[in-house]
Design a protein around this nucleic acid. Structure first.
Length: 676
RNA sequence: AGCGGGGUGGGGUAGUCAGGAAAUCCCGACGGGCUCAUAACCCGUAGAUCCAUGGUUCGAAUCCAUGCCCCGCUACCA
């Protein structure tokens, strides 16, 4: 049984893009499937409202704007436009794309916060807050860095991002350092406001049991709810943001007003369209959030608790997508592992639909997706060009050339049954947010079409048995019509063209799947078809890979520069130097390490009862045989490390010049002699 | 160390939540066919100890336990 269509109003949202940087392919992992889902809902006869908008508040934007010598207003404006434009170019069709800085959102946030206060879910508390005496200001969230009180890792003010992953409340972080000027911050008592998240524990456990969507988000949230739910500080000392009611010096935390954007965008859209937004947000409705897994915590814990506390409708489903990687590395702008949607894709003349197809069909929605230009090319050339494009073209071309119109005859029952089953399976897959499965199912209908065409050989029939030929062509045209309807959610622009090539009228995006079972009208004229999808040649892909490799190389070079520079400038004391235990030793054994090009495993006698095992990165310049019996300089108190699974308890010193040039004592000395 | 994601034919993937006869799909290899179509398409063949060990079961890729290995985070990334 399919979930749709439903009597209840349906709202679909996407995690708000943060107006602090350009759109890259990683973003699209959420937006494209959401758009496909909404288009598919329409095809199932389900009305749905689809909203999104820019997330414009919070500390990072203030910091970025300051660095850019701009105001936050100006700063967010450019990225808001950027995302809006990119989404339009990709066929991601929001009913409304707003901004959390819109007055409607300020109002709605105020209303909700007041409601929470009224319902006694908010209380004031004096807490220690980081304050920078040098900059003379309070340091919220990411203005401050320090040590996580739970795991002792380096952490940001609001989250232990390098360690245990916990959300940190203001005042928790140890050894705070001002991120703006780098000086030590101090703690000062200040009054802030807290949301009684802890009182929602039972409610949340229940909510998570009934919440729909993908399991990854629920499971993730459940663990947090079970362990500990602490009250949540919802105010910040910032100028930029939504004012906390009654306190001129405070704004609400960005994670309060950002999701409220979902409500205010719905409001703005509905008010413009003459609809009732309260049916969705205060009535019995289906609210569906598409997000990245990294914000599951907010959407499955904070957000439902806030909605409950203020008397709003709860989310019906949360769908969390997996991350996008490049060559097995997670996206990272600073490391160069990024593919920009404009610069690296659209500007090179690639059609948006190809990317939509690739991202949605590569792997399950909840799994990681490893971006690769060659796989992109492979999928486009084999599936879109070879199978789908070719079937549509050979069918339309053959029909147009021989008949010029849709031939007479009935579509065979087998073909209709096949189409019916495909629709059924695609709908089910969409219901489960299995976009890859849905697309694979559609592609197998395309393969079925090709086989049908091939095995009946209409090009022979046309001479021997024209009537039989007409039946086959009619079958194939019907399959083509079905394919166009089924593919429209995924590759809308291309299917709009194909719809016209079938000689059909109306907006294909507004047709339902059931239209695929309506037989084409015999005698209807068929225009001359044009090719829909072209192969991507190897040269183009090589070019794209080159661009990507270059960026990664540049980023790596930059990284090395920044990491290797400090030791040269930083002075150390003699005391510091004495902390190193450097000794002379003799290599007694050396061997290669399997699978490693650069490493050798050495046993070095440094005057201890047993030789030390040390792994050295010198295999490219030294054969194991040539260094046995040689004396070397060893840092003996290195922290043990595992390299290629081999333990290393020291470091061999070498000059770093296109490989390794080993240091050696001037003359033979006793093993274990220390160096100073 | 912590957290997260993984280990399925040569490469890439599905299936794992709800355990069942022959493990999906795309590429690649090999053989054949077709010539309507974008050197596209169709048919067939070979190729998998489903990371390992132990357990539960009539039955395990799937559930449980232990272990091994890979990858990511480490300056605001959905």
């Amino acid at each position: 049984m399919s979930n749709f269509p439903s009597e209840k109003p349906v709202l679909v949202t996407c995690g708000l893009p943060y107006a602090n940087g350009k759109c890259h392919i990683g973003h699209l992992r959420t937006y494209i499937p959401a758009d496909i889902f909404v288009r598919s809902l329409h095809k199932q006869g389900q009305d749905a409202t689809f909203v999104c908008g820019s997330d414009t508040h919070g500390t990072p934007i203030v910091v970025s704007a300051e660095q850019a010598g701009s105001t936050p207003e100006q700063f967010i404006e450019q990225y808001h436009h950027h995302f809006d434009e990119v989404f339009k170019n990709l066929g991601i069709k929001f009913d409304f794309f707003g901004s959390t800085n819109d007055p409607v959102n300020h109002n709605r946030t105020n209303e909700i916060v007041n409601k929470l206060i009224e319902n006694n879910y908010v209380y004031p508390k004096k807490i220690d807050l980081a304050y920078c005496p040098h900059c003379e200001r309070s340091l919220p969230d990411r203005y401050v860095e320090g040590i996580c009180p739970y795991c002792e890792s380096q952490a940001r003010g609001d989250e232990c991002d390098q360690g245990c992953g916990r959300h940190l409340e203001p005042g928790e972080i140890l050894k705070p350092i001002c991120k703006v000027c780098g000086s030590n911050a101090e703690y000062r008592k200040q009054e802030h406001f807290f949301f009684r998240l802890s009182s929602f524990k039972d409610f949340l456990m229940e909510h998570l049991d009934t919440l729909g969507g993908t399991a990854n988000s629920r499971n993730y949230a459940r663990e947090w709810v079970q362990n500990e739910l602490r009250d949540w500080c919802i105010t910040r000392n910032l100028e930029w943001g939504v004012r906390f009611p009654g306190h001129e010096d405070l704004v609400v935390y960005v994670w309060v007003d950002a999701p409220i954007g979902y409500i205010s965008f719905t409001e703005e859209y509905c008010n413009n369209a003459g609809l009732d937004w309260q049916q969705i947000w205060q009535g019995d409705s289906r609210i569906i959030h598409f997000i990245g897994l990294d914000i599951a915590y907010h959407h499955c814990i904070f957000w439902p608790a806030m909605l409950k506390g203020a008397g709003y409708s709860l989310p019906w489903a949360v769908i969390a997508s997996g991350m996008v990687k490049i060559e097995d590395k997670t996206f990272s702008k600073s490391r160069g592992y990024v593919v920009w949607v404009n610069d690296d894709y659209l500007d090179h003349g690639f059609h948006p639909d190809l990317l939509r197809y690739y991202l949605a069909s590569y792997t399950s929605h909840t799994k990681e997706l490893n971006f690769s230009w060659t796989v992109f090319q492979e999928k486009v050339n084999n599936e879109l060009v070879g199978s789908l494009g070719n079937f549509l073209h050979r069918t339309l071309h053959f029909a147009n050339k021989n008949f010029g119109r849709v031939p007479e005859g009935q579509v065979s029952p087998d073909v209709l049954a096949e189409i019916r089953e495909t629709i059924q399976n695609v709908t089910e897959a969409m219901d489960e947010y299995e976009f890859k499965k849905a697309i694979d199912t559609i592609m197998s209908l395309s393969a079925y079409g090709n086989t049908h065409f091939q095995s009946n050989e209409p090009w022979h029939m046309i001479k021997q048995d024209p009537d039989a030929c007409k039946r086959v062509v009619k079958d194939c045209l019907q399959i083509a019509k079905a394919l166009v309807l089924l593919c429209e959610p995924v590759i809308p622009a291309k299917m709009k063209e194909a719809w016209e090539q079938l000689g059909l009228e109306g907006d294909v995006s507004k047709m339902t799947y059931n239209e695929a079972l309506v037989e084409l009208e015999s005698g209807r004229a068929l225009p001359k078809p044009a090719i829909l999808f072209n192969k991507i040649d190897d040269k183009k892909i090589e070019e794209m890979e080159k661009i990507m490799n270059k960026r990664v190389a540049e980023a790596k070079a930059k990284e090395e520069k920044t990491t290797s520079a400090p030791p040269q400038v930083q002075e150390i004391t003699f005391e510091d130097f004495k902390t190193m235990d450097i000794r002379i030793g003799t290599v007694v054994l050396a061997e290669n390490i399997k699978d490693s090009d650069k490493l050798l495993k050495l046993q070095v006698d440094i005057g201890e009862p047993e030789p030390r095992q040390v792994v050295a990165g010198i295999a490219q310049t030294h054969e194991p045989g040539e260094i046995v019996d040689r004396q070397v300089v060893v840092v003996a108190n290195m922290k043990p490390a595992k390299l290629f699974g081999v333990e290393s308890n020291g470091m061999i010193m070498a000059a770093d010049e296109d490989g390794a040039v080993l240091l050696q004592p001037e003359k033979q000395v006793e093993n274990g002699t220390s160096v100073r």
